[in-house]
C-alpha cells in the first residue's frame, strides 16, 4: 500500500515538476478567471489571436537573446496597437485585422526560429509548452499577474459586469467602457505572456474558454462564475499536469483534455439546462 502511495508521489520528487505544476495550477485559475469575460464577450478569437501574436515576440526574443518577457511583451502590445489601427480605418473588420496581424506574427516567429533558432526543439516548446523550462521567475510572474487580476476584477467588479453585459448603457451611465476594455485586454495579454511557456501557443485559448464554459453550465450567476471557473481551471491544470507524468504525454495537451472531459461530464449531467445556458455562447 505504501509502495503505491509512494509511487503516486513520485513526480513531486522532481523540482522541475513541482515548478511546472505550481505554474500550471495558477495559470489554470488565472485563465479561468479572465476566461469568464472572454466567453461572455464572445472574444475567444482575440485570446487565440493574441497567443499567436505573442509567439512571434517569443521567437524574436529567443533569436536576439533578449529577455522573453520584454521581447514577447513589447511584441504583443505592438500587435495590439497595429490591430487597433487597422480596425479603426474600417477598411476591414476587426476580426480580419486580428487574423492578418496575428498569423503574420506567428509566421514570422516560425521563420525566425527555422532560420536562426534551434528550430525543432524551440518551436515545439513554444507551440505546445514545456514544463522543463519553467523557472522561479515564471512562478513569480504568473503569481503576480494572478494577484493583479483578482484585485482588478474584485475592485472594479460592477464596472466589469456592466461593461460586459451592456456596454452602451454602461457608457451612458458613467462607466469608462473603453478604459475597462483596455484594462481587460492588458490583463489578457499579460496572462498569455506569463502562461505561454507552460501551456503553449496552440492550446492557451482552450484554457481561456473551457473552464468558463463549464462554469456557465453550472450557474446562472456572474459572481459565482467568477470563482467556479478559476477552480475548474486550476483543477484541470493540476490534474492534467499530474496525469501527464504517468501517461508520458504533453502536459498542456493533457490539461486541455482533462478540461474537455470535465466539459463533457458537466454537459451530460446538466442536460437541457446546461445546454440552454451555453446556447448564447455562439463561439463555443
Amino acid at each position: 500500500m505504501s509502495f503505491v502511495f509512494a509511487g503516486l508521489l513520485t513526480p513531486f520528487r522532481y523540482e522541475f515538476f513541482n515548478n511546472g505544476i505550481i505554474v500550471a495550477t495558477i495559470a489554470g485559475a488565472l485563465c479561468g478567471l479572465l476566461g469568464v469575460f472572454v466567453v461572455l464577450r464572445g472574444m475567444s478569437y482575440i485570446g487565440h489571436g493574441l497567443s499567436h501574436a505573442v509567439f512571434g515576440g517569443a521567437a524574436a526574443s529567443a533569436v536576439m537573446n533578449v529577455n522573453y518577457f520584454v521581447g514577447a511583451g513589447v511584441w504583443g502590445v505592438a500587435s495590439g496597437v497595429i490591430i487597433g489601427r487597422i480596425a479603426r480605418r474600417r477598411l476591414i473588420g476587426a476580426d480580419a485585422a486580428i487574423g492578418v496581424v496575428t498569423t503574420a506574427s506567428f509566421a514570422l516567429g516560425l521563420a525566425l526560429l527555422n532560420r536562426y533558432g534551434q528550430a525543432k526543439k524551440s518551436i515545439e516548446a513554444v507551440l505546445f509548452g514545456s514544463v522543463l523550462g519553467v523557472q522561479t521567475i515564471d512562478i513569480v510572474a504568473v503569481s503576480a499577474v494572478a494577484i493583479l487580476s483578482v484585485i482588478v476584477v474584485v475592485a472594479l467588479y460592477r464596472a466589469f459586469l456592466f461593461a460586459t453585459f451592456d456596454p452602451e448603457v454602461a457608457q451612458v451611465s458613467g462607466v469608462r467602457v473603453a478604459w475597462i476594455e483596455a484594462l481587460l485586454m492588458g490583463l489578457l495579454s499579460l496572462t498569455i505572456l506569463v502562461t505561454m511557456r507552460v501551456i503553449g501557443t496552440l492550446l492557451i485559448s482552450a484554457l481561456l474558454v473551457i473552464p468558463a464554459s463549464v462554469a456557465r453550465m453550472l450557474t446562472n450567476s456572474f459572481a459565482r462564475m467568477l470563482w467556479i471557473s478559476p477552480v475548474i481551471g486550476a483543477v484541470s491544470a493540476f490534474t492534467g499536469m499530474y496525469l501527464s507524468y504517468f501517461l508520458d504525454t504533453s502536459a498542456s495537451a493533457t490539461i486541455i483534455l482533462t478540461g474537455t472531459l470535465m466539459f463533457i461530464v458537466v454537459y451530460a449531467a446538466t442536460g437541457l439546462r446546461g445546454r440552454t445556458r451555453i446556447s448564447g455562447l455562439h463561439h463555443i
Binding site: 456592466f162 453585459f165 462564475m225 455562447l281
Partner: peptide, 18 residues
C-alpha cells in the same frame, strides 16, 4: 443578451458602478 448570467437584482444595481 438574455442568456447572460445575471439576476434581476444584479441588473438593477448595475447603474451604481461608479
Amino acid at each position: 443578451d438574455w442568456n447572460f448570467p445575471v439576476t434581476v437584482l444584479e441588473v438593477v444595481v448595475m447603474t451604481r458602478s461608479s
